[in-house]
């Protein structure tokens, strides 16, 4: 952990940044969310340095508006909403870069053909099986490690569209506009992402004892 990423906590540094007087207390609260924010940003940006930047910027913005927040739960919700906007800004910039991955070409529909018989119905052994009471997995740390691993196994552009939709909570129209895709192509990419993520969780979590033993 780099020391430069620690939030400003001393009275002199808060004065330097023109921060409200209660900023030191808020900074302490915010530093408690830092690990979670970093995980969230890293998952979506797949780049530690950009994730660190986004988290720092979000924390600073939260500090600057610190006088409006008296309650920890609201502070957390708020700082995450700032972080979401920072992540969208970074994605927006990346779309214009030459290294941008086009999500549509990453997964071929034929990749999922082995799941189905030639008539389009599930194969006997790929028919979705019962996941039991999957919400119980939310309490299990190991589940989240598998979830992150499955997300990271999706190709980067595909994962980006999925996370913009499901984690950042954007409507498909907004995602299409940001990424210059047609609605239909957005839906196709989301379908492939869900298919891939479901398959990975099925194989790596629910098919084992992990889900049931959660």
């Amino acid at each position: 952990m780099r020391s430069s990423t620690e939030p400003a906590a001393s009275p002199s540094s808060t004065a330097q940044h023109g921060l409200p007087p209660q900023a030191a207390d808020i900074a302490a609260e915010l530093s408690g969310f830092r690990r979670e924010m970093l995980r969230f940003a890293t998952l979506q940006l797949r780049d530690q340095a950009s994730a660190e930047d986004a988290v720092q910027e979000a924390m600073l913005a939260a500090l600057q508006g610190a006088d409006r927040f008296g309650e920890r739960a609201r502070l957390k919700t708020w700082v995450f909403s700032i972080l979401k906007n920072k992540i969208v800004d970074i994605i927006r910039r990346r779309v214009r870069e030459p290294t941008y991955e086009d999500p549509l070409g990453e997964i071929d529909d034929a990749d999922f053909d082995p799941l189905f018989q030639s008539n389009g119905h599930w194969q006997r052994d790929t028919r979705p099986s019962d996941w039991g009471d999957p919400e119980r997995s939310f309490e299990n740390r190991s589940f989240w490690a598998v979830f992150d691993a499955c997300m990271n196994r999706l190709p980067p552009g595909t994962a980006r569209v999925f996370m913009m939709r499901e984690m950042l909570g954007l409507e498909t129209d907004e995602i299409c506009a940001e990424l210059s895709m047609s609605s239909n192509n957005c839906w196709v990419v989301l379908h492939r992402a869900r298919m891939g993520l479901r398959l990975c969780l099925d194989q790596r979590w629910f098919a084992g004892t992990g889900g049931l033993a959660a």
Partner: peptide, 11 residues
């Protein structure tokens, strides 16, 4: 469930 799990990422 995938949607529910994804939304858990944002506290």
């Amino acid at each position: 469930f995938l949607r529910q799990a994804s939304r858990q990422q944002v506290p």
